[in-house]
Design a protein around this nucleic acid. Structure first.
Lengths: 335, 335
DNA sequence: CAGCGCCATGGTATCGGTAACAGTAATATC
DNA sequence: GATATTACTGTTACCGATACCATGGCGCTG
């Protein structure tokens, strides 16, 4: 009598078998409506709380979906998480969230932990992982989704976009409006893989347009903050006068750069163009508004949920799906 | 042979009992070093993945801590979450996160779900909940923490600050610099409880300083975005000319207001003062920088973790702890 | 009225770890 | 040398739900 109320207690109180309680609480229509109501009322009266752990254990279905994000403190990733949350919530699945802090080693550690909870699907941000991570998730034998990227050798399904290609229209726009000397402001080499892809996209686009070499500005470890963006631009000093445009790895960085320019008396876009990435709210609210690349972060989450449903229903098992959600140029006042 | 590799399989392969495997994998020093290594190597060789669900079930300890946040897409709450994550991670506990979207009914639903996972502690943002929520968490019989607030009748432990008191220095500063006619820009009545507390703090402080009645500006449902802040200010139109200061419920709202003013040709702080709340990064980066109230969101998470440890170790069982982390005025250029 | 199918419910075993207790061999103590 | 202690390993039962199979009762058909 010491422990918590269990189904047995409810069964006894309702005068039925535990099996019937189990069925009634899950809304099995096989159970008579009257019995169902009786069981539910009894359970409520006793303050019974269903034990999902026991269910997960017995049925060998955890009800979890594992998600790794580089950072939780990022409006875009938060939007993706919200999309996932909504969609998987409807499927009765709960998200197990972990943050990798833009570090593949940390991701590996996290994945190890998450897999011990026997998730029914695994969602990894990005397409770049350690070998061990790849082995682990493959061995887990559940649907894998890589998001926010289009990996060359996907582990499973993919919902994302090309971070490199996304930069092309941006650079083209800059070139068209007469900007030739570009700088890319981003994280140090080797931390932010998606940021590196964007950099590559800018460098390649500039090259193919016949622009001079892109100046690379290291703003520090990912995630690069507004402050780091501002500091990096300030540190450029007189170099800034030789530049036509600052292509920033994200909108927060662009905003930091914009503020730094304002403090330094530089006119944007007259003296210098600035671009961001991600279409964060700040890009459209600030003055001047920032030209950026729109990505539907929320849709990424929703699409993963939708595809999962199809996978769970067995319509596409063994068939690797790749969904390229693309991106679009969102013009602002900074160029 | 069909199912997943279990401890039994590892035990057989290593020539020991499952019990020894269990002990070895958990690093029990009671097990001989050589045996431990043997077991670990065997487990690794077989690709064994520990089943935390089974452990949770047998030991009746889920390893989970339930957390509800109003919104995940908020730098402050994200910081708190990070603090929680770090601290509870060190204790070997995993966070189960849910977002209430600033709705106590949604919170109740969420809490119901989370409790079914038998969390070892419950962390609720805010001190305002439905009756059912209160009953549920009390009945769960685990440590409860309410954060980001100082409730009158706490459910358990508290780590937060007074949202009302936090506004006093702000209003005093405004009064000292000659601002008399204040407006408060926040969410509609009945959604954001902490926002309402801040509003109350402003109204009370203004009254006790002999300032005229505070003009209340409804910017829509919580969470109020930058855009909503900007729209609300724009909608004020000529009323704006009669005001000396806009006290905003958060920094994003303040930034939206600031941008709107800039677009309308109003000089901040000359024509109008603006204040925010939360000391978001944007407050110190933007031009002019925003005067705001600093709250150590990360510390809230860390402190909850620290206090939990004490509770788990039984040093303070039954003893309700309240930790007021306070807040401080962070002066910027907007007033 | 036997035989069949359908509906609603019950009995039993079991998921994979581990708590609790029970050894056993080697070493220390008197 | 007998006993106590230490260091390590093993045995058994069990956590709370549910998969699987069995069964009783009722209506319907021929």
């Amino acid at each position: 009598m010491s422990g918590r109320t269990t189904m047995r207690d409810v069964a006894k109180a309702a005068g039925v078998s535990p099996m019937t309680v189990s069925r009634a609480l899950r809304g099995d229509t096989m159970v008579n409506q009257k019995t169902r109501d009786l069981v539910r009322n009894t359970a409520a009266r006793l303050g019974y709380v269903y034990d999902t752990t026991a269910q997960a254990f017995r049925s060998q279905k955890s009800g979890f979906v594992a998600v790794t994000l580089p950072s939780i403190n990022n409006a875009n990733f938060a939007d993706t998480f919200r999309g996932l949350s909504e969609t998987f919530g409807d499927l009765g699945l709960q998200l197990l969230l972990g943050s990798t802090n833009y570090d593949v080693e940390a991701e590996e550690h996290l994945v190890r932990q998450l897999l011990q909870r026997r998730p029914e699907a695994i969602i990894l941000t990005g397409g770049y992982h350690t070998d061990a991570t790849q082995q682990l998730v493959r061995a887990a034998n559940v649907p894998i989704f890589e998001i926010w990227d289009l990996p060359d050798n996907p582990l499973g399904h993919v919902v994302g976009f090309s971070n490199a290609d996304a930069m092309k229209p941006l650079v083209q726009h800059l070139a068209k409006t007469g900007r030739r000397k570009l700088a890319f402001v981003g994280a140090s080499e080797g931390t932010d893989h998606r940021g590196a892809e964007r950099r590559r996209g800018v460098v390649d686009a500039a090259q193919s347009l016949g622009l001079p070499d892109v100046h690379i500005v290291d703003a520090g470890q990912a995630p690069v903050s507004m402050t780091q963006g501002a500091d990096a631009v300030r540190a450029l000093g007189s170099t800034l006068n030789d530049l036509d445009a600052l292509v920033c790895v994200s909108d927060p960085v662009a905003f930091g750069a914009l503020s730094a320019c304002e403090r330094m008396g530089l006119q944007v876009p007259k003296d210098l163009a600035i671009t961001g990435f991600g279409a964060f709210e700040i890009a459209s609210v600030c003055v001047p508004s920032i030209t950026t690349v729109r990505v539907d972060a929320h849709a990424i989450g929703v699409r993963v949920g939708d595809l999962s449903l199809r996978v769970f229903e067995g319509q596409d098992v063994g068939h690797r799906m790749t969904e390229d959600l693309g991106s679009s140029l969102q013009l602002g006042e900074t160029c």
